[in-house]
């Protein structure tokens, strides 16, 4: 009896049930905190005509960008794209549908989707192309547009640590969209750097309770850096920090 034990032992098992035409919500910001091995598994499976909901679409050879060459993505809902050449080519050729969504609205769509709120009003995008075709209402003299929540058939998430029950802890800015994605998947799959025994995580420090999580797998990560910016170390010492 598995009880609350969410741990699976293979990536194949982690993404079992994913089929063509499904919607996947993915955590990550740029290449930071992306579920890189779950994405690789989707590539390996060859699932097609997917709708991806993610802040960005990776780069040519890493992150969600790896799903582009075999035309696995039909549509992407994102706030900022175009860090890769194949994406640009498919978008310009009309092979890939792109729904640009303001970053805060995208986060709230996931949050609302996971929280059972079907839609919400926001001032973001009023008077812009984002407002086209959306209901507008005035509250206290200010205009707002109605944005609908998003629920995914799958959510793919990267966390730092999980216990076997799927309680999650994220690390630094690799948290980003991950906890929101975790709530908004009908099946939420999480890959982590470390799985610990139940009881080892301090309940006060858990970012995402296991109730949102269906499957947990431990992986190894490349964690590629998109913009490597540094300062000289002598300046560091001079400031005495």
């Amino acid at each position: 009896m598995a009880g609350f034990d969410k741990v699976v032992s293979s990536y194949e098992e982690a993404m079992a049930g994913l089929t063509d035409n499904m919607t996947i919500i993915a955590g990550g910001f740029g290449l930071c905190g992306i579920p890189e091995n779950l994405i690789a598994e989707i590539k390996r499976k060859g699932t097609k005509d997917l709708t991806l909901v993610s802040n960005n679409c990776g780069v040519d050879d890493f992150g969600l960008g790896v799903l582009l060459p075999n035309r696995q993505i039909k549509k992407i809902v994102a706030s900022y794209v175009g860090e890769n050449a194949e994406f640009e080519r498919q978008m310009m050729a009309g092979e890939l549908e792109v729904e640009l969504t303001p970053q805060g609205t995208l986060a709230e769509k996931m949050r609302a989707g996971g929280a059972g709120i079907p839609a919400f009003f926001t001032a973001t995008g009023v008077g812009t192309p984002v407002a086209e075709g959306k209901e507008e209402r005035t509250f206290n003299g200010r205009d707002y547009i109605l944005e609908e929540a998003i629920v995914g058939d799958f959510a793919i998430v990267k966390a730092w640590k999980a216990d076997r029950y799927g309680n999650l802890v994220f690390r630094k800015t690799a948290r980003n969209f991950n906890p929101l994605a975790a709530t908004a998947g009908k099946i939420t799959v999480v890959e982590v750097e470390e799985i610990v025994e139940v009881g080892e995580l301090d309940p006060d420090q858990i970012h995402t309770p296991g109730i949102y999580v269906n499957r947990v797998i431990q992986g190894t990560f490349e964690k590629r850096i998109e913009q490597r910016t540094t300062r000289p170390s002598d300046m560091h010492e001079a400031k005495g920090e």
């Binding site: 930071c32 630094k172 800015t173 964690k223 540094t230």
Partner: peptide, 28 residues
């Protein structure tokens, strides 16, 4: 930094670089 950081510091030294810590421009 809208990717989820309040209290952004300076760029890291080579030794301090952390792939899990970036700003909204995706810089470490």
């Amino acid at each position: 930094s809208e990717n989820g950081l309040l209290g952004m510091g300076q760029f890291p030294t080579e030794d301090e670089i952390d792939a899990d810590l970036i700003n909204a421009g995706k810089q470490t």
